[in-house]
Design a protein around this nucleic acid. Structure first.
Length: 559
RNA sequence: GCGCCCGUAGCCUAGUGGAUAAGGCGUCAGCCUCCGAAGCUGAAAAUCGCUGGUUCGAGUCCAGCCGGGCGCACCA
């Protein structure tokens, strides 16, 4: 809001300067207003003069002079303005100008930082979507943390968000799962079996087989291979899927919808889209298979949708799935994928283009791989070989908050090393505690302030009656400036779909708070000063909580 | 070979085209009779992989190299 005010002043000044003949053009490009990084550069600055140079055909500093000359200097918030460097206009604001931020935070409370950037647009975020053939591992954990946070952030930014998990409950791997369990089942019944390479070898397969033996026993044995494998597949997939749901729940991630791939076949949607594409002549037959002309939409080569054995590929149902998403009325569709699937993007884009929709309504977020380390050494993981540390193991070991915060600490564009030894042994150095500590510290201050009758209660009833005018210390103004930047950080995070922006912001705010806390006492002998400072730190508490909420991390009153 | 991501201090990373490149780990020197030391202050440490280009201005955008990761199935 401070920025909007400055923007208006500059534009008014520029207009007046033009009217009076000091500027040559009244075409004013979109300027940026930034918080200055150094105190010597004032509080806010704009690049207006520099970006106008080519339009005005004037030197930036000359433009800046003309604008400042014409600007309304009697403003209540501005202390002084100056021209600096290549042509920045720097604004030094009066300290009182910042005080209104605290009041705004108290008033909006848990809604502070929310915006209408999304204007209610319907957006779907699909994430995790791991095949129900084994438990979730660490890579799924990162995807889950990212997808969930993006959902939260978009929701806060005014989008109407739906979270969805796509269940691949059809096709070859489910059959392989069934076969794996079936073979272990036969083994448990004393029959010698040859366990093929492609089957899942994890211990959990044996456990499921044991369970089936106890449950169905001889009846299943007599059913024969075909029916046996099918029964095993269905039973195992259900079992594993409910395990996945339980683990995600423990991780704090819930979905609005669990979408089954099989339903796309049952409802005929897969065949319908293939027929549709045939009619559009973008599907052709070659070597007994059906190919989709993805190459003409920018893919490296055409792709098979129906194999020469008559079975559809995964791609076929995926096309139908993305059609289905848009048919459900989403303005925007976001898929969160592991980076190893990046080669798939062009294909999906092609199908969206082919259906006449705009692929700019479709975003894929590629989450780079997580390397799981233990004591600096990589932990080998392979679902097939059955050697892995599951997401559940990790959450049990380092805790949900720490795991989520670490997953969101860096951009998903970069690979992430996750060292279990470090995360467990150095919990006190974990960034999550650094931020949560701020919340806990302030909570305890509030409790004490209530006990000392400084404020009436631990809710915000008292806040409206507190004057912030005693807040004049440099650290206090600095802290308020950081608080004021929260909404634009949320918007940036939503616009770029990068949750780590919130992480970085929270670290900055926490650092500024800790510094302030160590230098200045909040609860002092001076009642009015104490109340003003309490108002400030409670605003910090609110923003920390709002930020942590977006990342799906708790904000504890005590630790 | 083609495609995607990444190269920023000893290590891990932030960095909407703007001024003096910012944190953490590690190293070194300090701070608890005082609101929670899971904290704070200070110091040393960077040719932002290389070469060009666009721009008033490039760590950021473009091109080409070099290095690392991951993909390139009638698997999912």
């Amino acid at each position: 809001m401070m920025k909007a005010l400055i923007r208006e002043l500059v534009l008014d000044g520029a207009k007046k300067a033009f009217d009076e003949g000091f500027l040559k053009s009244d075409s004013f490009p979109e300027m940026e207003i930034e918080q200055s990084r150094h105190d010597a550069h004032g509080d806010l600055s704009t690049n207006f003069a520099m970006i106008s140079a080519s339009i005005q055909k004037m030197a930036p500093r000359k433009i800046a002079e003309a604008v400042i000359e014409a600007m309304d200097a009697s403003s209540e918030v501005i202390e002084k303005t100056e021209i600096a460097g290549p042509g920045f206009i720097n604004f030094f604001l009066k300290k009182e100008a910042w005080h209104s931020v605290i009041e705004e935070i108290h008033r909006k409370n848990s809604a502070f930082g929310a915006s209408n950037l999304g204007r209610g647009q319907k957006v779907q975020v699909e994430f995790v979507s791991a095949n129900p053939t084994g438990p979730l591992h660490i890579g799924h954990g990162r995807g889950a943390a990212v997808g969930d946070a993006i959902g939260n952030i978009l929701g806060f930014a005014g989008f109407d968000v739906q979270r969805e998990y796509y269940i691949n409950d059809s096709g070859r791997q489910i059959r392989t799962l069934g076969l794996s369990v079936w073979l272990r089942f036969l083994e448990a019944n004393g029959q010698p079996v040859d366990f093929p390479e492609e089957c899942y070898k994890g211990e959990y397969i044996r456990e499921i087989a044991q369970e089936l033996k106890a449950l169905k026993g001889d009846a299943l044995l007599e059913a024969g291979e075909e029916e046996g494998v099918q029964t095993c597949a269905r039973f195992a997939a259900d079992k594993i899927l409910s395990g996945i749901k339980r683990d995600l729940d423990q991780f704090g991630v819930t979905f609005d919808k669990w979408f089954s791939e099989q339903t796309l076949y049952d409802s005929g949607k897969v065949m319908a889209v293939i027929d549709d594409f045939k009619e559009k002549e973008i599907i052709y037959e070659k070597e007994k298979a059906l190919w989709f002309k993805t190459e003409q939409y920018g893919d490296a080569k055409d792709r098979v949708v129906v194999r020469n054995n008559g079975l559809t590929t995964y791609f076929a149902s995926d096309i139908a799935y993305h059609m289905e998403k848009f048919d459900r009325g989403f303005d925007r569709v976001i898929d969160v994928w592991g980076a190893d699937h990046h080669g798939y993007i062009q294909r999906i884009n092609a199908s969206i283009d082919a259906s006449g929709r705009k692929s700019d309504q479709f975003d894929v977020i590629l989450v780079q791989l997580v390397t799981l380390l233990r004591g600096g050494k990589p932990v080998a993981m392979s679902t097939r070989a059955g050697e892995f540390v599951t997401l559940k193991d990790i959450v049990d070991e380092v805790g949900r908050d720490a795991a989520r915060f670490l997953f969101l600490s860096r951009s998903y564009d970069s690979g992430l090393d996750f060292d279990l030894e470090l995360a467990r042994q150095q919990t006190s150095e974990n960034p999550v505690y650094y931020v949560q500590y701020v919340h806990a510290r302030i909570s305890s201050m509030v409790t004490r302030a209530v006990e000392e009758n400084l404020i009436s209660s631990d809710n915000l009833d008292w806040a409206a009656e507190v004057s912030s005018s005693p807040l004049v210390e440099a650290e206090e103004i600095n802290l308020i400036k950081i608080l004021a930047a929260f909404p634009e950080n949320v918007e940036k995070s939503a616009a770029t779909l990068h949750p780590h922006v919130i992480f970085t912001y929270l670290m900055r705010l926490a650092s500024a708070f800790h510094g302030y806390y160590n230098k200045h006492k909040v609860l002092t002998e001076d009642r009015e000063l104490s109340r003003a400072r309490l108002g400030l730190v409670v605003a910090v508490k609110t923003v920390i909580r709002n930020g942590l909420d977006l990342l799906g991390v708790s904000a504890p009153e005590k630790m």
